[in-house]
Amino acid sequence: MSEQLALGIGPEKSLRFDNFYTIAANRLLVNQLKLQAESEGEQWVLVHGTPESGRSHLLQASCHQAASHGFSASYFPLREFTDANPQALLEGTEQADLLCLDDLDVVIGRPQWEESLFHLYNRALLSGTALLLASRLPAAALACSLPDLHSRLKSFSVYQLTALSEEQRLEALMFRATGLGMELDRDVAEYLYHRAARNLATLFGILDQLDRESLRHQRSLTKPFVKSVLGW
């Protein structure tokens, strides 16, 4: 089945549910997002969590999940559009079956943005579009200047995304490597983790680089090989 991705920023192809490292505390949330993407779950969902907790991964995974089931989906990282005209940007977005808006908290407090989001909510209500929002803060803690928007946001089903512990980040790194078909021993994983920036986006980028180089040179991921590729 071909994917139907509507207008917006195309979600990264690699960000899907099957390569999201899901700890027990986040299992309910992930299951709910899968149901929503397949048009069988809740229509209004807001996910909040700290930076690096995986919010953006899950929103883009939801887009892929929806598209793989024949539904149209759009993804907008609002952080990249703070200087855009929100009315023009969001016009017609309610035509998607699933609309994912990332970094909601970045535009809250801006009157023009809040008004446009409020009107988008009303249009989505009429069209039946499912809305998936992600924010650093829960709906009740967002400092909305438009009371009507705040009340709408508080009507969403709110889920907290639990950030990974240090040990779980290491496990996530090894999980990602397995998904890429790479054999990453724990001692090499620990070496990478402690030498590189410990945010997962950077670590995953390093893994992609090592994957390409190991295939090109037909080498396994040993410490000497990692050092030679990364110049450490």
Rank of each mutant, 00 (worst) to 15 (best):
S62P: 08
D211C: 05
P86D: 00
Q112C: 01
R195E: 14
S2D: 07
P11R: 01
T202N: 04
A130M: 07
L7N: 02
A84R: 00
L46H: 11
E213V: 01
L149S: 05
H57W: 11
L131C: 02
P224L: 09
T93Q: 02
D185T: 05
R55W: 13
A88C: 01
Y159M: 03
S74T: 03
E3F: 13
S2Y: 08
Q4T: 10
L15M: 14
R216V: 03
G128W: 02
L99C: 12
N122D: 07
W44T: 02
L170R: 06
G109A: 06
T202Y: 15
E52K: 03
Y191W: 04
F204I: 01
S14R: 05
N122Q: 12
P138F: 01
E213I: 02
L89M: 02
E213S: 03
G54F: 05
P51Y: 13
C100A: 13
A139Q: 00
F20Y: 14
E94V: 12
G128Y: 04
D208T: 11
L29Q: 12
S39Y: 05
G70R: 11
L29H: 15
F175I: 00
E213R: 10
S228N: 09
G181C: 11
R198T: 15
L153V: 09
G54D: 12
L180N: 08
S2L: 13
A172G: 04
S68M: 10
D105G: 11
L200A: 01
K13W: 06
A172C: 15
A172W: 00
A134P: 11
G179V: 12
G92M: 06
L153H: 03
V107A: 02
Y193E: 08
L230G: 09
